[in-house]
Structures are given as structure tokens and as C-alpha cells.
């Protein structure tokens, strides 16, 4: 198909459009189906993109941090912490090691014990935040050295709970993309059905057109143009509503955790704009296939 014909589909030919009688019912159904599917696709896309961001963030941020926990009698705590910090600063691959202040530790415990907790009354271990540099450190070697010099220290490099989280985010992203594929397939199926119905309802018209010498391309394009334009309009409306809905979701925040990160960021807002175009392409292909198979049955 050359560019001229593709262009003529959209510019259309007023005469050709009148040849097929206007059909209110299938028109509204196609419009609605395309709109609803585009709306859902926007959310599936937002979910995929947000899950992708989450997986990347968890994978990179958590991978480069670890926690050293020191449990010791109160009088030895300060000394052991000092030794541990010295060891950590000497370890190649550790960019930064910092003991958390009592206020920070209280902040971490606040969700469980409520605010106003006096840590001095509790035997709370001292936490040291360890940040890796690009090369990373040898965790096994560090553990051996700590075991010898700071008996109360436990190194937690977060892999234990990081991995399932990253896996969860990755599969969430996968589910998002599968949903988009299913939405596209469902839209193709609905538009095929609507196109078949329209073609069947206009069997007489098609027969007359064949008898007066219309080529298949001419007849098919009269239907294809209609359905493509309807699907495009429906998908534009659905995408607009969907994007509005995403815009109204609460922005990403620390309090809300990962659930509030759902949405588009920066250039990500350009992605949903592809949905109407893809929707129109799906409608184009579905109607074309339906018209082709239907016309073959006629002489």
C-alpha cells in the first residue's frame, strides 16, 4: 500500500463515505469499546512503568547499601561501635560508614512504638549504615574480620529481602505489559465483531457495489476508514480520561510507600500518547481482515 492510499484513508472521499449507509449502533459500540480499552491501557501502562521504576530503584539503591548491627552491653557499645567504624573505613569498597544517631534510630522505631520513645530505657542495638562504592566490598571477608574484632556485630547486606521485592516489582511490570497486550487483543476482537456485523448488515450494499464494478479495495476502505476513525476518536477520549485519572492519583511520597508511585514521570507522559495511534492501527488491521474475508465470499 503506498502513501497516497494511506493518506486517502484519512482524508477520505466524501462520495465513497456516503456509499455505505450511516450506522449509529456499531459506530457507538466501536467508539465505546475503543475508549474503554484505551482508558484501561493507560492504567496498565502506568502500572508497568511505575513497577519498572520501582524494580530499578530497589535493585540499585538497596544493592549499594548494607546495615551493620551491634548488640553489646551498654558499657561496651560505644567502644565496639568505634572499632567497627574503623574496620569499615579500612575496608576497600566501602564508600561511607556512619553510625545512626539515637534520634534516627528512634525515628526508625517510631512506626512500631509510637513517637516520644526514650531509647535509653531499651536495649536497642546500634546501627551503622554502610554505603558501597562502585566496586563493592567482599562481604565474607568483612564478616570474618568483624567476628574476630567486634563479637556483637551482624552484617546485613539486604539481599535476603531485596531479591523478592525486586522480583515482585519485575513480575508486576510483566503483568502490566501482558495486560496491555490483552487489552489490544480484546479491542481487536471487539472491532472485528463490530466490523463483521456492519459488513453483514450492509451485504446488499456490498453486492450492489460489486455489480457496478467497485473493486474490493474500494469497498473495504469505505468500512476500514470508518472503523479506524471511530477507534481513533474513542481511543483519544479514553486516553485523555485515563491520563486525567492518573494525574489525580497522589504523587509518590515516603509516607505512602511504593503504592503512591503509580503514574508517569517526565517524558513518561509521552508513552500514553501512543495508545490512540496503536488503537487506530489495531482497528485498521482488524477491519481490513474482516472486510477481506467477507468480500471473498461474494462474486
Amino acid at each position: 500500500m503506498n502513501r497516497g492510499t494511506i493518506r486517502s484513508y484519512f482524508i477520505g472521499d466524501a462520495q465513497a463515505d456516503r456509499v455505505v449507509p450511516p450506522s449509529g449502533f456499531t459506530a457507538r459500540l466501536t467508539l465505546f469499546a475503543a475508549g474503554a480499552m484505551a482508558f484501561l491501557a493507560v492504567f496498565a501502562l502506568a502500572l508497568s512503568l511505575a513497577a519498572g521504576r520501582l524494580a530499578d530503584r530497589w535493585a540499585s539503591e538497596l544493592a549499594r547499601s548494607a546495615t551493620l548491627r551491634i548488640t553489646a552491653p551498654a558499657d561496651q557499645m560505644a567502644a565496639q561501635t568505634e572499632v567497627a567504624l574503623t574496620i569499615l573505613r579500612q575496608t576497600p569498597g566501602v564508600a561511607r560508614a556512619r553510625a545512626l544517631s539515637p534520634q534516627e534510630q528512634a525515628g526508625l522505631l517510631a512506626p512500631w512504638f509510637g513517637p516520644g520513645l526514650d531509647l535509653a530505657t531499651l536495649p536497642v542495638p546500634q546501627l551503622i549504615e554502610v554505603t558501597e562504592d562502585e566496586t563493592g566490598y567482599d562481604a565474607a571477608g568483612l564478616r570474618l574480620r568483624l567476628a574476630a574484632e567486634v563479637p556483637g556485630a551482624v552484617l546485613d547486606d539486604h539481599t535476603r529481602w531485596r531479591r523478592p521485592l525486586v522480583e515482585a516489582a519485575t513480575s508486576l511490570r510483566r503483568i502490566g505489559w501482558i495486560s496491555i497486550a490483552l487489552i489490544g487483543g480484546t479491542m481487536a476482537a471487539m472491532i472485528s465483531l463490530a466490523a463483521h456485523a456492519a459488513l453483514a448488515a450492509n451485504a446488499q450494499v456490498i453486492e450492489v457495489l460489486r455489480l457496478v464494478g467497485a473493486r474490493d479495495v474500494y469497498i473495504a476502505s469505505a468500512f476500514v476508514r470508518r472503523f479506524t476513525i471511530r477507534a481513533l476518536i474513542g481511543a483519544v477520549l479514553g486516553t485523555g480520561l485515563g491520563m486525567g485519572g492518573v494525574l489525580l492519583l497522589p504523587a509518590a511520597s515516603d509516607e505512602g510507600g511504593f503504592l503512591t508511585g503509580l503514574g508517569f514521570q517526565g517524558l513518561g507522559w509521552l508513552w500514553p500518547l501512543l495508545i490512540p495511534i496503536l488503537g487506530a492501527l489495531v482497528a485498521f488491521a482488524a477491519t481490513w481482515a474482516a472486510a477481506r474475508s467477507r468480500l471473498k465470499e461474494l462474486t
Partner: peptide
């Protein structure tokens, strides 16, 4: 066999259109 939704003149012109 005409297209019943189009006026007679358009039906007569149909072969030209297609």
C-alpha cells in the same frame, strides 16, 4: 438493486463514483 439511502441521481452516478 439500488442503494436505498442515496437519491436516484447518486445511484445512477454510482459506477462513476466507484
Amino acid at each position: 438493486r439500488f442503494l436505498d439511502h442515496l437519491p436516484v441521481a447518486d445511484n445512477i452516478a454510482l459506477p462513476l463514483v466507484v
